[in-house]
Design a protein around this nucleic acid. Structure first.
Lengths: 227, 227
DNA sequence: ACCTGAACACCGTTCAAGT
DNA sequence: ACCTGAACACCGTTCAAGT
């Protein structure tokens, strides 16, 4: 079958731009996402993009928006019934669902931290969490605290600082032994069996759930005290 | 007293560059810190900086390093004796001390998240935390989990997403009422008395401590179970 | 209505040249 | 040894012009 290219090229649209941007960022990282590079990807001139989206920030916002739309699908919608007995596993499941999506777009957390303005679907995600906790019987005050306590964990990630940098000049364990003896001892003791981190910031699934469960546990205790 | 400028200007040094960079970033934000702007501040040509520091990343690393040196002073050194009875308040105090310093340099967390390679003094900070927990009687395994669970809270910050963006186009509470009813209800109920956030990511001191205490509580429980 | 080319005002950085 | 000027290879974006 001979490859038959369409004579007339598909017209540019906002969706096509965002789709190509998403694919490019997934494939080559967020730094590769420049207006000129994106235009190349679309077989178009850089300035053509500006006809469909006002500027680069709008593209980045659109990507976050798209990601949270994926999350909405992944968790089966943001509206959920919950009771004082079920909110905790329900929230846990929702957060881990969000995490599964972010693992497909690891550069998205980086966008969420900075630009920071809450895009609509992201706001609806948070709204869903609030609704879940409210249905679980928590006071708005406790819910408010809970959102702060969870922080970025609410979305399924928590940035940490890797002990391993990709640089070639990374000092060996022996070299740092005297500068950071406790750290070295810990690393020697703990078999860090999965050096490949899952979400850019080196929090693997087990560690993520460990921290999440402590927080859920503490929130549940405070919720029980409220009642 | 007439202002008497020295005829020969003070020679450039690594420390002078870093000092000016720190001051500039504190005053005008990290985005204002460009090589040309920094050179202006030093009364020098942009390229002169490269004689004292290899590149911009080295400047950013140096700033993180300087910040953690400030933290070391603030908390009275990283070495601390602790016992199973005292590790928890000791760690709490250390983290809140780190936070006080970061509040003076709010742009530093942003640097720590991305570049990410652990600068020496930062490694020593973590080492101190490990030493503290070890002296407190925790196993290396639990300590390892603890570092992950604390995440960036270990350093005194936790990024969250502000509900308030500085944009003029921020939708009012009424406008978002139907899109995010639960969120709107919570905001209406909770008197968010301090709209001015403390550390860029809108986590004020109270909220930070709330989350921190839940984590410390959970860690203490697991530590007790270990013994 | 949709896309383009040239240009502007920035970046970080290289490199040969000044003193 | 220390600093500089010109230049390079990039950015995002504006604006007048094409079809």
């Amino acid at each position: 079958m001979p490859p038959r290219k369409p004579a007339v090229r598909e017209p540019l649209t906002r969706d096509r731009v965002l789709g190509a941007a998403m694919e490019l960022a997934d494939r080559e990282g967020i730094d590769a996402l420049t207006m000129r590079r994106l235009a190349d990807e679309l077989g178009v001139e850089a300035m053509s993009i500006y006809y469909h989206l006002p500027n680069k920030d709008a593209i980045l916002e659109g990507l976050v928006e798209t990601t949270f739309a994926e999350i909405e699908t992944e968790v089966g919608g943001f509206a959920t019934a919950a009771t004082p007995d079920t909110w905790r596993p329900a929230l846990r499941e929702r957060i881990l669902g969000a995490r599964r999506v972010l693992l497909r777009h690891r550069w998205v957390p980086g966008l969420m931290e900075n630009g920071g303005s809450l895009v609509p679907t992201m706001a609806r995600y948070v709204d869903g969490v609030v609704g879940l906790l409210r249905a679980g019987g928590l006071s708005y005050d406790l819910i408010h605290h809970a959102l702060h306590a969870l922080g970025s964990r609410m979305y399924g990630f928590s940035q940490e600082l890797g002990l391993d940098d990709g640089d070639d000049s990374t000092p060996s364990l022996e070299e740092m032994m005297d500068a950071v003896p406790n750290l070295a001892a810990m690393l020697a003791d703990v078999v860090h069996d999965d050096p490949e981190s899952t979400l850019g910031w080196c929090d693997d699934q087990t560690e993520f759930e460990f921290g999440l469960d402590i927080l859920l546990e503490g929130l549940a205790r405070r919720a029980a005290e409220e009642r």
